[in-house]
Simulated scan of single mutants.
Amino acid sequence: MSDDEQAIRELVETWMGATKAGDAETVLGLMSDDVVFMVPGAEPFGKEAFAAALKGMGMMTIEGRSDIHELAVLGDIAYLRNQIEMTATAPDGKATRRSGWTLTILRKGPDGRWRLSRDANLLTTQSGAP
């Protein structure tokens, strides 16, 4: 595995860990300023809207698992195909489970760090959530 592939895998692990810890600052630092997210049923949105959504989650806790199925580095651009499962639990104990695939494009910045640049998130809500 190349250093770049390892760095991208570490970025995904850091994202998942920071999300679980409620560390919005770390999550936001893992994406480019011009990031674009695409999710079903909504217009594409950027970093500012993502940050607002994180803030709106309040005291919700998130547990998740990521399984990278494909990762390719093409110079300073990379993509990954990732299967994600996550459960968001509200303070009252009500949980929502979502799972599905993402297709993510990353760019390597002038500082040598990889950042998420584009993300097509196809997660859907699953029935039978805990």
Score class of each variant (00 low, 15 high):
1 M>R: 11
2 S>I: 06
3 D>T: 12
3 D>H: 14
6 Q>C: 05
8 I>L: 08
9 R>W: 10
11 L>A: 00
12 V>A: 13
15 W>Y: 15
18 A>Y: 02
19 T>E: 12
19 T>Y: 06
20 K>Q: 09
20 K>E: 11
22 G>L: 04
22 G>Q: 05
24 A>P: 01
25 E>K: 08
25 E>H: 01
29 G>P: 04
30 L>T: 00
31 M>T: 07
31 M>F: 04
32 S>N: 13
33 D>T: 04
34 D>H: 09
34 D>A: 10
36 V>R: 13
37 F>P: 00
39 V>R: 13
39 V>A: 15
42 A>Q: 07
44 P>T: 03
47 K>S: 10
47 K>V: 05
48 E>S: 13
48 E>M: 02
50 F>V: 05
52 A>P: 01
54 L>N: 08
55 K>N: 08
59 M>C: 06
59 M>Y: 12
60 M>G: 02
61 T>I: 06
62 I>Y: 01
63 E>C: 07
63 E>F: 14
63 E>D: 15
67 D>F: 10
68 I>H: 07
68 I>Q: 12
68 I>K: 05
72 A>P: 01
73 V>R: 01
73 V>M: 00
75 G>H: 01
78 A>N: 13
79 Y>C: 08
79 Y>P: 03
80 L>W: 02
81 R>F: 07
83 Q>G: 03
85 E>V: 09
85 E>C: 03
86 M>W: 03
87 T>Y: 06
88 A>K: 14
88 A>R: 05
90 A>V: 00
91 P>V: 00
92 D>F: 11
93 G>S: 03
94 K>I: 11
96 T>V: 15
96 T>N: 09
100 G>H: 13
103 L>S: 14
104 T>I: 06
105 I>R: 11
108 K>W: 14
108 K>Q: 09
112 G>W: 02
112 G>Y: 06
119 D>W: 12
121 N>Y: 11
125 T>R: 15
128 G>L: 04
